[in-house]
Design a protein around this nucleic acid. Structure first.
Lengths: 206, 206
DNA sequence: TAGATTGTTAATCGATTAACAATC
DNA sequence: TAGATTGTTAATCGATTAACAATC
């Protein structure tokens, strides 16, 4: 089942399909259709069928998709069948909220280490984890082979920390710092900046 | 200066241009070019010039763009010259972090009201604001004519609250709940869900 | 002037959708 | 069987980029 190249816009929709399938499962639905998914998600049914078709045939004509089966397939495609360990850097207000967030583990992402550069924060316990100094970063990331890091440090520190993460072999950065990071093309960055969202929505306000 | 229809993908890049211009300003740059912006942002220079061209001519041949001038133009285009008031609904860990975040006000978005449905949270002070009960929501939103709301409630409450916001005339929702909201097409929703980011990045991990 | 960079056009590239044969 | 829905093709639509005249 060799997958062809699939564009990033397609990949970014797959987690939305998965989330909707989980929602439908909770509603008690065992079967769904591209049309139902489309209506709920605000996409077209053709787009959903096309997106899935890059990876295989998961439905039955006349019937639709089995909710649990399609969930499993999406998890396999996204490589999230196994729980992945992550580190979080920056234990400010936001970092603490993230360290306490249950949704990561529920969706297979396990926070296993916290780091901060402020001496007064070292040793604090947040979300069941002890805040470690940045001097421990290299050791922990390498020993635990962490590929995913959540970056919640101030903007002016973010690029420098990102550079270190790249050197340590980190492959995916969930970036909460309000800055465009420069990283090699084999490292993924997903940016979360609420201000960007507010500013783009403001365009549409009268 | 009537603007033609400009697609959403273009609008969503404008805040990134603005953020980069602010960064260049801090570096002391007074002038920049589409090429410099492109390199720093990871876009093509043609794309940047094209995006800006939908709204006017802001550069000088041979020279480039005046950093401050282009900032002002982008703020005008995005309608963020005036500070906008916002409400925040849901004062959990994340809500508290958001209420304390200085970045909103720095970028012209002013949090003026907090709401929560939990009786034990009512009256608490967070980020200088007092948490109000949901029974006050309609009054406050209408009296203060709030168009922008940050939604940080649990997933199972989010759609219901969103429905109320739509009825109250809210035009833009910054949605932190991990759910696809259904709203009329004249209401903007910007979703912030870190799990979606992690799941899409996982696809690229070996 | 010579060099640099814009704004814009036209071509290219890529994503979305309509439509339908296949088939459950 | 009749009705429904998939998977896929081909057409359409839209976004990106290369190229360059204009001009600072």
């Amino acid at each position: 089942m060799a997958e062809p190249f699939v564009s990033e816009v397609v990949i970014e929709r797959l987690p939305l399909y998965l989330r909707m399938l989980q929602f439908l499962e909770k509603e008690g639905k065992q079967v769904t259709s591209s049309q139902e998914l489309a209506e709920r998600l605000g996409f077209s049914s053709a787009q959903i069928r096309k997106d899935l078709s890059y990876f295989g045939e998961f439905g039955k004509q006349g019937t639709g998709y089995n909710v649990m089966f399609l969930q499993r397939q999406l998890r396999r495609i996204l490589q999230i069948e196994q729980t992945r360990d992550m580190a979080l850097i920056g234990v400010g207000d936001l970092g603490r909220a993230l360290a306490n967030y249950q949704g990561f583990l529920e969706q297979g992402f396990h926070l296993v280490a916290l780091f901060d550069s402020a001496p007064q924060k070292i040793g604090m316990t947040v979300g069941g984890l002890t805040v470690q100094p940045m001097t421990e970063l290299a050791r922990v990331i390498q020993e635990r082979k962490l590929q995913v890091v959540i970056l919640a440090v101030p903007a002016q520190a973010a690029q420098q920390v990102a550079n270190r993460l790249v050197e340590l072999g980190v492959r995916a950065i969930l970036n909460y710092a309000p800055i465009t990071l420069s990283v090699p093309s084999d490292v993924r960055v997903y940016n979360i900046d609420p201000v960007i969202g507010l500013q783009s929505m403001a365009y549409y306000l009268k």
